[in-house]
Design a protein around this nucleic acid. Structure first.
Lengths: 216, 216
DNA sequence: GCTTTGTCGATTGTCGACAACATACAATTT
DNA sequence: AAATTGTATGTTGTCGACAATCGACAAAGC
């Protein structure tokens, strides 16, 4: 069994990415290579490459010779992100039904959500929710779609961490998913598309003030 | 008026990208940093960063400590690429009609295609075709969609350069587009979606042999 | 003969130092 | 006082050198 052997840039990118999508590094926060290099006891090279990875994730932006910062989130970007997510998930649903893919795997995540809701564990429910939707995309058997969805979901993760709107009831969230699976099992395209559409849209509400950049 | 001042990595990335999407660097071709650095008279740093940019474009892949190469194209990837392109363009058409965006700009590219077809200039027609579709996406007023479409179209450009199937008649290609614009002007959603769907699908045929990796 | 071990060449990964650039602010000039 | 110029500082951009890793092949031991 080979031992884990990841380049520094990947480890650093993972660290920074987590900090961004959990809201610890807020939009607008500046990333200074030398400071990060000192802080992590590595040279600037892997830091630069890590930041470039995050740039490709769309989480960081660079201005030549001026600086790098966590990409500010505009209301428009948030809207477009959820918008595309809906299109992606609808596409997945259509493909799943078109190719008659089994959807049993989704029930596992539904049960996990119900359990998390019963325990009042929001974090666990969020994780199960993400797993449910990622599985939905996976079942559509479209690698490129999965890649783009993953990239998109990074930003969604970030948005969810930043918004301060009243979060919906845990039980409600958990309850939203089983009907989708049932519609899939019934091969009801219109109903499944309608439900997944409604579902993703219901998540798209947010408070513009909460995503305003705080740091210069 | 400020003069253009682009970092080396961007210039290098542009050069390599062009070489890849025009087929001069075929899938499977290995990219050696030191060799490229010598060849371009720069150090390895900007070469590395340029390659990382191409990696984000999905045109190059890296295996740690082993090498970097132009990403091999599988039949599946080609299919998924065209598949997503269709979804993107359908989405754009729906948005254009939903928000009642003017589509005059599309006629310009239609005329350019007709002229190119009359002149028998395939390159010019291809450029006009790309402009037509990019304009279509632009008109849908969705920045994120445009970004993803651009990224996707890089691969489409590459695929078109590599495939050796008999290319359709120039006049036919030019003739395919005006009906789409007319359907948009008539606000006929179903017809417009149907036409754009058909159109993108008709481009998706390819010869698997032509995209096989030639270099080790 | 087969396995194991060592060595070699090629490539990427990382490092520290220096150069280029942009901004802000002080100094100078008018 | 206003405009211009110079300068200082902080940041990214680029460089050359060294370290780590991989794959393959040769060498040694059983």
């Amino acid at each position: 069994m080979p031992i884990e052997q990841t380049p520094l840039r990947v480890q650093i990118a993972d660290m920074l990415r987590r900090a961004i999508i959990t809201g610890k590094l807020r939009p607008g926060a500046v990333l200074v290579e030398t400071a990060l290099a000192d802080q992590m006891n590595v040279s600037r090279a892997p830091i630069r490459e890590a930041i470039q990875i995050l740039e490709n994730d769309g989480l960081v932006e660079t201005v030549a010779y001026k600086g790098k910062r966590v990409k500010p989130l505009t209301a428009r970007e948030v809207e477009e992100t959820y918008n595309l997510r809906e299109v992606f998930e609808v596409m997945a649903v259509r493909r799943i039904l078109e190719y008659g893919r089994p959807v049993d795997a989704l029930w596992t995540h539904c049960r996990a959500m119900e359990q998390a809701a019963a325990e009042g564990d929001r974090e666990k429910l969020t994780a199960a929710d993400e797993a449910f939707h990622r599985t939905l995309i996976r079942l559509s058997d479209h690698d490129l779609l999965l890649t783009l969805w993953n990239s998109l979901y990074l930003r969604i993760h970030q948005i969810m961490a930043l918004r301060n709107t009243a979060q919906p009831n845990l039980v409600d969230i958990a309850g939203n998913h089983p009907p989708i699976v049932r519609a899939l099992e019934a091969h009801d395209v219109d109903e499944a598309v309608h439900l997944i559409s409604e579902h993703t849209r219901s998540l798209a509400d947010f408070d513009p003030a909460s995503i305003a950049e705080l740091n210069a």
